[in-house]
Design a protein around this nucleic acid. Structure first.
Length: 266
DNA sequence: ATGGCTGGCGACGCCAGA
């Protein structure tokens, strides 16, 4: 048997890197993930806290945007080697929602799917087109002989088990049948939804809105997902959500979600 | 059934989030 190594991959929608930097640093120090996908930086490229993350031991690449969106990839002790900073399929799309790199021997895509509200409407149409573009690109990744992960905020509630009250969200873009079908078609390429796979009865939520103390009462949604191709899924060991981050003062409305995988040593 | 909260922007209230 070849020697193996364990890697922890995580995704975290920070809802503003400026406001959330202390939370991010505290979480990195406590949980020590090896690879991190960040979403909703809500900051231009020049405002990314490169030095603070380097001080914390992480190399980073990012694609920011003023006010909205923005994604990044972090590598513990290494600099991610960027392979893409755009999702193919629409040259006119300028929103910062995709970045891809090799990190610790894994090809990792950080994604921030469009919210899609209100639906129906142009924003919902954009969401569906974006999901189709993601599926087209992912088809070329899933069968790679290397480990590949797609990590991020998908803005998709996959099933009624992934929301505290499906009725309360029935008109929302995140739960619409077309969106669920698009997500199911993506998975059918051969991706493993890691949280669902290891928690088939009740997968943990990853988002709780700011209303009515929903975080404290665990009335949430599972919309941040970690998709693994078959090579990587073969080494899947554990998966979870660091809900303690969501319960901090001034927290993001999302918590970090993570997987632990065992890989052959290169 | 509705409105509840938060961040960014830029200067008081608005847009967007999910």
């Amino acid at each position: 048997m070849p020697r193996r190594r364990t890697l922890k991959l995580a995704t975290f929608n920070v809802n503003g890197i400026g406001t959330r930097l202390p939370h991010l640093l505290a979480w990195l120090a406590r949980e020590e993930p090896d690879v991190v996908a960040l979403q909703e930086l809500k900051a231009p490229d020049g405002s990314f806290p490169e030095a603070e993350l380097e001080q914390a031991g992480y190399g980073a690449i990012w694609r920011g945007q003023r006010s909205w969106n923005g994604v990044a990839l972090l590598g513990r002790g290494v600099m991610p080697v960027q392979s893409r900073r755009d999702l193919p399929g629409d040259r006119a799309d300028t929103q910062s929602r995709y970045i891809e790199a090799a990190v610790h021997g894994v090809i990792v895509a950080a994604v921030y799917l469009p919210n899609g509200n209100p639906q129906p409407g142009p924003k919902f149409d954009y969401k569906l087109r974006w999901m189709q573009r993601l599926a087209d690109h992912a088809r070329g990744l899933v069968g790679q002989p290397h480990p590949v992960a797609i990590l991020g905020d998908f803005n998709v509630i996959p099933t009624d088990d992934d929301v505290y009250d499906p009725k309360a969200w029935r008109k929302d873009a995140l739960i619409q049948p077309q969106v669920r079908e698009a997500y199911a078609r993506l998975l059918a390429q051969g991706w493993t939804d890691a949280l669902r796979h290891l928690h088939p009865e009740q997968a943990p939520y990853t988002f709780w809105d700011y209303f009515r103390q929903h975080a404290q009462r665990d009335r949430g949604l599972r919309i941040d997902h970690l998709l693994l191709n078959p090579v990587l899924a073969a080494g899947l060991r554990r998966a979870g959500v660091d809900r303690w981050v969501r319960l901090q003062e001034k927290a993001s409305d999302h918590a970090p979600a993570w997987v632990e995988v065992s890989l052959p040593r290169a």
